[in-house]
Simulated scan of single mutants.
Amino acid sequence: MLRTPVDGTRLRILTWLREPGTAECGLTADDVATRLGVPRQVALTHLRLLTALGMLRADHLAGPPVYRCDEARIAEVAEVFEKGW
């Protein structure tokens, strides 16, 4: 389900999106690509997977989508793993 890469890229993205300031504003694919030092398409692949899993939500306002953590969904997933699934 999570298909976490060995280097922890998706975990780093989730961590960044929970930092003060970033949690409220979110990040675009370009922001993530810059922070990871990868092409935008690579960042989009990670963001789309996390969104499909329900870990992120993408707000499509004016301009590019802005990604934010879905804290309720993250709590649900954490609870499942804590129960030993």
Rank of each mutant, 00 (worst) to 15 (best):
R68A: 05
E82P: 00
V32Q: 02
L53D: 07
D70M: 14
A23D: 05
T9N: 06
R48N: 09
G8N: 02
R57Y: 13
E71S: 11
Y67E: 03
C25S: 15
L2G: 15
A52R: 15
A58G: 13
E82N: 08
R18I: 04
A75Y: 00
A29P: 04
M55K: 03
R40H: 06
V32N: 00
F81K: 10
W16K: 04
L49H: 11
R57V: 15
R10S: 08
G21N: 05
L36T: 08
V66E: 00
R40W: 01
P65T: 08
P65R: 01
R10P: 03
M1S: 12
T9V: 11
P5E: 12
G84R: 10
R35N: 12
W85M: 05
E71L: 15
M1G: 14
V6T: 11
D70L: 12
A72D: 09
L14Q: 12
T9S: 05
A78W: 00
G54N: 15
T28R: 02
R3P: 01
F81M: 14
R40L: 00
T4K: 08
D7K: 10
A62D: 07
T51M: 08
D7M: 06
L56E: 02
H46T: 12
D31I: 02
E19I: 13
L2I: 10
E79L: 06
H60Y: 06
L53A: 14
P5H: 12
D30P: 01
I13T: 04
T34M: 06
E19D: 13
L36G: 09
C25I: 13
R40V: 07
G8M: 05
G63C: 05
P39I: 07
L61M: 07
L47V: 07
A43Q: 01
Q41M: 11
A58E: 09
A75T: 00
A78T: 00
P64T: 13
G21Y: 07
A52V: 13
A78F: 00
R48K: 14
Q41H: 11
V42L: 11
A33V: 07
G63R: 05
L56Q: 03
L56H: 07
D30V: 08
L53G: 06
T34R: 11
R48G: 09
W85Y: 08
M1P: 03
V32F: 00
P39S: 05
V80R: 14
T28S: 08
L56K: 06
A29C: 07
K83E: 13
W16R: 05
F81T: 11
E19G: 12
R48S: 08
A62H: 10
E82K: 05
L56A: 09
A23N: 03
P5I: 09
A75L: 01
T45I: 06
A78Y: 00
T4C: 10
E24I: 11
T4H: 09
L14H: 12
A52D: 14
T28E: 01
G26D: 02
A29S: 06
G54H: 14
I74D: 05
H46E: 14
D7P: 02
G8E: 03
H60D: 03
V42Q: 09
P20K: 10
Q41E: 12
R73I: 05
P5C: 11
